[in-house]
């Protein structure tokens, strides 16, 4: 029982990180029909930028702020200068992001070297919380709570604000949206930059536990894609549900059959695709 609770909490922690990555991925997919191969790179760059800042200033908060600002700006520039010209044409967009993913990986190797590292824990979160037999690191609980807050924030923005309404309209039907006066190109830039910043924020949150190393970008990318496919492409609610499903399955899979990790993700994906090709909450 203790084991089950601990593993479930670990699963929720993975789900929290996955949600931070996948929410941006699914939204930029919804708005721009873009399969962003560089999305894992945003996560990676987030960890690295935060690491540099933490080394110099000692402050994790400054590190997080810098990571979000730098990677968000990078995402905005990438969308403006390179991706916007292709409209919603998925193939050139995908190739472009693949090129950037390789550039970012090599640039990170050049700037930060290949040694793995981990971000420090915030001092007030370095202990664990005990409840009965269950002992759980408080930092992981903190990340789960933060991701929950981000989810609520994203939901409030998308459901209660004008920007959110425009966003949902564009996801549903970009042509009609632009016909009724929504500036789809500007919205795309905004969504892409916000998605990049969220992934970088995820990198900072996961940094003390997963750390940073060359290759982490493509390690997390498949998980994020499976989340988006299971949840439904373009749907925030889907990203949330998908993150929990994939986080749990991945975690229990790794604990029970370590040699088949990743492969355990195959089952939920195939089941969802067989019965709901557009994902749990996606629309055709």
């Amino acid at each position: 029982m203790t084991y089950l609770i601990t593993q479930s909490l670990n699963g929720l922690f993975s789900a929290a990180l996955l949600f931070l990555i996948a929410s941006g991925l699914t939204l930029s997919f919804g708005v721009m029909k873009i399969v962003n191969i560089a999305h894992g790179s945003f996560y990676m760059l987030g960890v690295y930028v935060a690491y540099s800042v933490v080394l110099r200033t000692g402050s994790l908060w400054l590190g997080a702020a810098a990571a979000v600002a730098v990677v968000g700006t990078l995402g905005l520039l990438m969308q403006r200068l390179f991706l916007r010209r292709f409209g919603a044409d998925p193939l050139p967009q995908m190739m472009m992001t693949m090129g950037f993913a390789l550039l970012f990986r090599d640039a990170a190797l050049m700037i930060w070297g290949g040694d793995p590292f981990a971000l420090p824990y915030p001092s007030w979160l370095s202990g664990s919380i005990e409840a009965g037999d269950v002992v759980f690191p408080s930092y992981r609980l903190f990340v789960i709570a933060v991701a929950g807050l981000v989810a609520i924030g994203l939901w409030l923005v998308s459901d209660k604000t004008l920007v959110g309404a425009r966003l949902r309209a564009t996801v549903d039907d970009p042509e009609m949206a632009s016909a009724v006066g929504i500036h789809v190109a500007r919205l795309s830039g905004l969504v892409f930059a916000a998605g990049a910043a969220l992934a970088a924020f995820g990198g900072v949150m996961g940094g003390p536990i997963l750390g940073g190393y060359p290759g982490i970008d493509f390690d997390l990318l498949p998980l994020a894609f499976v989340v988006v496919i299971v949840g439904g492409m373009g749907s925030l609610k889907g990203a949330l549900v998908g993150s929990v499903v994939v986080g749990m399955i991945d975690n229990f899979g790794k604990a029970l059959v370590p040699e088949l990790s990743y492969f355990t993700l195959f089952a939920p994906m195939v089941l969802v695709l067989a019965f709901r090709p557009t994902g749990l909450y996606g629309r055709a």
């Binding site: 399969v35 998925p90 990743y262 492969f263 090709p277």
Partner: peptide
């Protein structure tokens, strides 16, 4: 039964699942 960009994303995920198998099924 899937097309276009959905096909792209799903084949990507399936390919990476198989890569994971080759990498971890020691």
């Amino acid at each position: 039964h899937v097309r276009d960009v959905y096909f792209l994303m799903i084949t990507l995920a399936l390919g990476m699942v198989l890569w994971g198998l080759s990498y971890r099924w020691i």
